[in-house]
């Protein structure tokens, strides 16, 4: 097949941007596996590293779970109803994507820190600083917009008439949501959840500022190894985190492709 001029131009432009994105990734893998395979193997069997990576994955999962429980119903409301203050709420949801992570950290500290607005009063039974809830809250703060916005778009793409018809067929409001709106919006909710999880696992500043270095998440460990032991020590952990994230990403994207294909 002959390629047209515009297609050729787009391919060239595409190659450039893919190169910018792929080069650092390819480079770090190449450097690691070609020159420091033993270092990588020792890192991947290091209990401390595995714990940090595991904690990152798990906390990010919890953050997505909480966002899912509270954010999906909100996304449905935003997609279906008009009410006063809707624009304000949408602005608040988008804001975390726009602010620097250190600013997020400062804001979180003033609310969830030991002497914070909420963190203070509940400190006798629930601590955010230096504890898992803190990691989850920090991750949630920066990652929630991705899931909520994607879910809202998902619900917006479902014709409200489908739910009306479901009601006329005997479905209650809840049944119409569960059997019609939710399954139809699910591919987009799922894709939002993946993005949310990815954003959560990558958060460094907000987590470190609210929680501190312990319990240690993967980005924290990479930073501390880099800072105290040098570039190559940090790189080993970074490669592990990259590998796991890449695997999860590819796996979920594959699942997502199957979901879309069904509809």
């Amino acid at each position: 097949m002959k390629i047209g001029g515009i297609t050729a131009l787009f391919i060239a432009l595409g190659i450039f941007i893919v190169a910018v994105l792929a080069l650092p990734i390819a480079n770090i893998f190449f450097k690691q596996f070609a020159f420091d395979l033993t270092g990588f193997l020792s890192a991947i069997t290091d209990q401390g590293v595995l714990k940090a990576v595991g904690l990152s994955c798990f906390s990010a999962f919890l953050a997505v779970l909480v966002t899912f429980m509270f954010g999906v119903p909100l996304a449905y409301l935003l997609a279906r109803k008009d009410f006063r203050g809707k624009a304000l709420i949408e602005g608040i949801i988008d804001l975390p994507m726009a602010i620097p992570h250190v600013v997020a950290g400062i804001m979180l500290l003033t609310v969830f820190g030991l002497s914070g607005l909420i963190g203070g009063p509940v400190s006798s039974f629930l601590r955010f600083e230096g504890a898992l809830p803190g990691i989850v809250v920090a991750m949630l703060f920066v990652s929630a917009p991705f899931l909520i916005n994607s879910a809202r778009e998902g619900f917006q793409s479902v014709d409200p008439r489908l739910e009306k018809v479901a009601r006329s067929l005997g479905a209650t409001e809840w049944e119409a949501f569960r059997k019609v709106a939710f399954p139809l919006a699910f591919p987009q909710i799922f894709s939002g959840a993946i993005m949310s999880w990815a954003r959560a696992i990558s958060e460094f500043a907000a987590v470190i500022m609210l929680v501190g270095f312990f319990p240690m998440v993967a980005p924290g460990m990479i930073w501390s190894r880099f800072y105290s032991q040098g570039l190559y020590e940090g790189m080993r952990v970074a490669v592990i985190l990259l590998l796991i994230t890449l695997l999860v990403f590819v796996g979920l994207k594959y699942l997502q492709g199957r979901l879309y294909a069904k509809h």
């Binding site: 014709d159 008439r161 489908l162 009306k164 018809v165 479901a166 009601r167 006329s168 067929l169 005997g170 479905a171 209650t172 409001e173 019609v180 399954p183 139809l184 069904k262 509809h263």
Partner: peptide, 20 residues
Amino acid sequence: LPPEQRKVGFVYQDYSLFPH
């Protein structure tokens, strides 16, 4: 009464079948 208690069948112009 809410729609589900009315025993009314509804057919829209665009059929509104559940695509999934």
